[in-house]
Simulated scan of single mutants.
Amino acid sequence: MSVETKISNKIFDNCLMNASGAKCMTFEDLSKLKNSESGTWITKSCTISSREGNPSPRYVDLKLGSINSMGLPNLGFQFYLDYVLDEHKLGNDHLFFSIAGLSLEENMEMLNKINSSDFQGWVELNLSCPNIQGKPQTGYDFERTEEVLDKIFSFYSKPLGVKLPPYFDIAHFEIVADILNQYPLQFVTCINSIGNALYIEDESVVIKPKNGFGGIGGAYIKPTALANVRMFYKLLRNDISIIGCGGVETGKDVFEHLLCGASMVQIGTQLMKEDISVFSRLLTELKTIMKAKNYKSLNDFKGKLKEL
């Protein structure tokens, strides 16, 4: 039984990885991910300069998931570039490097530096951070999304994908897919957390930033995540892979993301709750499902969701 998967021309031992917001900020975090059972890992979404992020409490575990308004805390672009270049020297070119500049100019500056570096992995361009005060999500502004990709692909020549916010309207799926299909993207990650939710406990909000409004993750968002994975799998070119993210707590959840068309599956909230042991457990549970259904590889069922 094989749980290998592929994006572009690179093969991964299995389909699991962390989400770019979960336990991947420091060198210690990244080292633990490297030594885990994940198929690969991704760095924290970074900005040019380091950021403290929003005030605490800014992340709270909930019964069915989590709520957060982190505000992009990170150690700055140079730290993560140095990290992935050190991994390159060790022969590891299967890494994902997440960037989330606070402006188009900042993203272009980071991408220019990556483009001229020895980095041989993938960049995940975050178009969907819902928790920067005063900053709208680029992914909901379709003209701006097209402008960003136009300018980036006028010079950027290395493998790149985008992390998308959740969409809720069929027309929006089609509009976004038409835009993305114009560019040499290698993957899309969907979805980021559902932004601007509110959770109340004992007559009070549970996080401090934005008057308690934050991004919801975990089981709350799995149906929305699966819908996004499915629609983009159907609408995007065959050479654009889908990385599913949202609501993955069990091997069944992983199986359903793959069934909808994901090539890889990111773990966020459950990684925060369970730490890196989550990858081993999810792989065991996924293989149990595959064995029961007599599937020998992910290709036996990936993207083959039945319709009534």
Rank of each mutant, 00 (worst) to 15 (best):
E201Q: 15
K304E: 01
C46T: 11
I243F: 08
F97C: 07
K10Q: 15
D13Y: 07
K287W: 03
A171I: 05
Y220H: 08
I170P: 06
S103Y: 11
Y183N: 06
C129P: 02
D178H: 11
G303K: 11
I242Y: 06
L81P: 08
N35I: 01
H172Y: 09
P223I: 00
A19V: 02
L283D: 06
Y167F: 09
G218C: 04
L111G: 06
G217L: 00
G268N: 13
K306V: 14
S2C: 10
N196M: 11
L271M: 06
N131S: 12
L305M: 14
K273P: 07
I179C: 11
I216W: 12
T138R: 15
N131W: 02
D178P: 02
K89I: 09
V162E: 04
S116Y: 12
K234H: 10
H88N: 15
P73M: 06
R144G: 05
D300Q: 05
R51S: 10
Q120A: 13
T145R: 09
G212M: 10
G53Q: 02
E106N: 11
N228S: 06
I170Y: 10
K44N: 13
K32H: 09
K158T: 07
L111V: 01
L102D: 15
A100R: 06
K163W: 00
T288Q: 15
L90I: 09
G65M: 03
E146W: 07
P184Y: 10
F255Y: 03
Q186S: 14
S8M: 06
G101I: 00
S204W: 05
G244M: 00
P165K: 02
V84P: 07
E256K: 14
K163R: 13
I152Q: 07
Y220E: 03
L305R: 13
E285N: 04
I67D: 06
Y167P: 04
R281E: 02
K10V: 11
K135G: 01
T250H: 09
C245E: 04
A22S: 15
V248Y: 10
I207H: 07
S20Q: 10
L180G: 03
S277M: 03
I179F: 13
N126H: 09
D118E: 14
I240A: 05
S98I: 00
D169V: 08
S193T: 15
K210I: 07
P165R: 02
Y220K: 00
P166G: 11
R237V: 00
F301P: 09
F187C: 06
E109S: 14
K44I: 02
M70R: 09
R51K: 15
K304H: 08
I276D: 08
G161F: 02
G303E: 10
Y295T: 03
G212A: 11
V265F: 03
H257T: 00
Y59V: 06
Y59M: 04
F155A: 09
F155T: 05
K23F: 13
G218P: 02
I243V: 03
S277E: 08
G39R: 05
E201K: 14
A19R: 10
Y220D: 01
E106G: 12
I170K: 13
I114W: 00
L75D: 15
E174S: 13
E52H: 14
